[in-house]
Amino acid sequence: MRYELSDLRLFLEIAQARSLTAGAAAVFITPSAASYRLKNLEQALGTALFERTPRGMDPTPAGEAMLAHVRELFEGIERMQGDVSRFVSGVKGQVRLAANSSSLNGFVTPTLGRFLVAYPGIDVEIEERQSEAIPAAVLAREADVGIFAGPSDVQGLVTHAYAVDRLVIAAPSGHVLAAHQRIRLGAALDFDFVCMARASSNYLFLRDSAQRLGKIVRARLHGHSFDAVLALVAAGVGIAMVPSSVLGGRWQANPLAIIELDELWALRRLSLVVRKDARLPGFITEFVSFLLDDPQVAVTRASG
């Protein structure tokens, strides 16, 4: 049986987006054309690949089995293109990175800028996820590289120590907490918070930690970035839980008090993972080395 790569790419995009419309847009065709091509693919295979639900397009068991093979197929094609392009016009390719918000804002972004300048033929697709979901996403080939905080029991991954960070409480200089050097999260939750976006991994971690203590986060508003959150904290709107890596010199330039969280989990050990069985293109291996060897990141591993 012959398979058109364009149809398999469409299948992959629909499966990843859980949407026929989004999958069609990703390969630059209309939804009606995508529906026709998907129907032909299902007929050729003799089985349904998706179940249409109110939530979107959920792969059937047959679709899940096919998805694993199609991801591996396109991974091989990407690897082939990377190997061949070195002899033509320099290294070209794309890296898919899944990371939590703390690593993205505190460590990854500055390194990423230098990598993209050094490798103009490489593009990087970033997706922010909660730390708990990242190892499984890498194992499922939804990302090539993952960076997350905390332990993981997901098997089949190669794990590298990436960086060490610490969650702290930022408060206005005149706040009642400003006199404290350390505080438990439960006590901090008695005050108003300025939070990151509702979908951010930073806020979701704070929300879940509060729930385990039987409390809620009194969020006055959700900022779009750590810079915005810290500016609002400095203005006296509330306090915030942030990774110390995002502070830089901001807390010295703004009237902020930084209070350590007296919690074992506040020390955040960040790990970088790739699949153990992955035959990664050279440019992804170089990307991993670039992230791990950044001196500003490596120094945190020594101090942690």
Results as ranks from 00 to 15, higher is better:
residue 185 L to R: 06
residue 286 E to A: 14
residue 163 A to C: 05
residue 276 K to Q: 15
residue 290 F to P: 05
residue 58 D to G: 01
residue 257 A to W: 02
residue 131 S to V: 07
residue 158 V to N: 07
residue 71 R to M: 13
residue 92 K to M: 03
residue 295 P to Y: 10
residue 223 G to N: 05
residue 16 Q to N: 10
residue 185 L to T: 05
residue 176 V to T: 08
residue 160 H to I: 01
residue 256 L to A: 01
residue 238 G to L: 06
residue 264 L to C: 10
residue 230 L to R: 06
residue 140 A to H: 09
residue 10 L to R: 01
residue 42 E to F: 08
residue 196 M to H: 11
residue 197 A to L: 14
residue 38 L to C: 07
residue 95 V to R: 01
residue 7 D to N: 14
residue 265 W to P: 00
residue 11 F to R: 03
residue 253 A to Q: 15
residue 111 T to G: 15
residue 193 F to E: 09
residue 158 V to P: 00
residue 222 H to M: 08
residue 177 L to W: 03
residue 40 N to G: 06
residue 206 L to M: 14
residue 234 A to I: 03
residue 54 P to E: 11
residue 283 F to A: 00
residue 58 D to V: 08
residue 266 A to H: 07
residue 246 V to S: 02
residue 62 A to I: 01
residue 83 D to N: 13
residue 224 H to A: 11
residue 145 V to H: 01
residue 77 I to H: 02
residue 76 G to P: 04
residue 34 A to G: 15
residue 279 R to H: 14
residue 149 A to I: 08
residue 177 L to Y: 09
residue 115 F to D: 00
residue 256 L to C: 03
residue 32 S to W: 06
residue 144 D to E: 11
residue 278 A to Q: 08
residue 140 A to E: 14
residue 9 R to G: 05
residue 48 A to W: 00
residue 86 R to M: 13
residue 121 G to R: 00
residue 195 C to R: 00
residue 298 A to E: 09
residue 146 G to Y: 02
residue 27 V to K: 06
residue 288 V to L: 07
residue 53 T to R: 13
residue 300 T to A: 01
residue 143 A to F: 01
residue 123 D to H: 10
residue 220 R to A: 13
residue 211 Q to T: 07
residue 285 T to P: 00
residue 304 G to C: 05
residue 98 A to I: 02
residue 105 N to Q: 09
residue 176 V to C: 10
residue 150 G to L: 04
residue 92 K to V: 12
residue 26 A to M: 06
residue 194 V to K: 02
residue 263 E to I: 02
residue 96 R to M: 03
residue 280 L to W: 03
residue 88 V to D: 12
residue 64 E to L: 09
residue 61 P to Y: 09
residue 288 V to Q: 00
residue 232 L to I: 05
residue 81 Q to S: 14
residue 300 T to F: 05
residue 233 V to S: 08
residue 52 R to V: 12
residue 44 A to V: 04
residue 118 A to F: 01
residue 58 D to A: 14
residue 107 F to E: 03
residue 240 A to N: 06
residue 67 L to S: 01
residue 181 Q to A: 12
residue 124 V to C: 03
residue 296 Q to W: 09
residue 70 V to C: 12
residue 45 L to K: 08
residue 41 L to Q: 03
residue 23 G to Q: 13
